[in-house]
């Protein structure tokens, strides 16, 4: 059963569950990387309460953070995110696209925006009413 995050969570949805997974103690990092992650997490907390946002999965070097409205679908979204990331890498290699920085998957009901940097990857799930390019700009991931 996923545990709620201990830090304060201002999400409006009482049924949402946040899962933080620390795989092993984090090695000392450069301050800039820590600040980037913290800044991104702040952006995600603000984004999460927006209408139409289903949730997100943030994967850093040694940890992952998942916040999905429907806790029964956490694993499904995690698997989809993983498969899409992997497919992006494979297609990038096959078509010689260079380093992948964005993958977008759109379905009939919802869409997934995945952003990659050297240090982390972020998948945001949203309803089709939202503009994924606008969400990308709001997150300001570089």
């Amino acid at each position: 059963m996923p545990r709620k995050r201990k830090e304060e969570d201002t999400t409006e949805d009482p049924n949402a569950q946040t899962v933080s997974v620390k795989q092993e103690p984090a090695a000392p990092r450069e301050p800039q990387t820590e600040r980037d992650i913290e800044r991104l997490q702040d952006s995600l907390r603000r984004l999460k309460v927006k209408k139409g946002i289903i949730g997100y999965i943030l994967r850093a070097e040694k940890s992952a953070s998942i916040d999905i409205n429907d806790p029964t679908k956490i694993i499904d979204y995690a698997v989809l995110s993983s498969i899409v990331l992997n497919a992006g890498e494979i297609l990038s290699s096959s078509f010689e696209l260079g380093g992948v920085y964005k993958v977008t998957l759109e379905g009939e009901k919802a869409k997934m925006l995945t952003l990659r940097t050297n240090n982390h990857s972020l998948s945001v799930f949203m309803e089709n009413t939202l503009d994924s390019d606008k969400i990308h700009r709001e997150l300001d991931v570089s």
Binding site: L97, G98, F125
Partner: peptide
Amino acid sequence: SFQKIAEKAELIGGLRSFSVDGAQG
């Protein structure tokens, strides 16, 4: 790759489009 994604894309209502943006293409 498409087959694997299509199987799991039922979660979001089936696959409508998929794009990969890389540094060079």
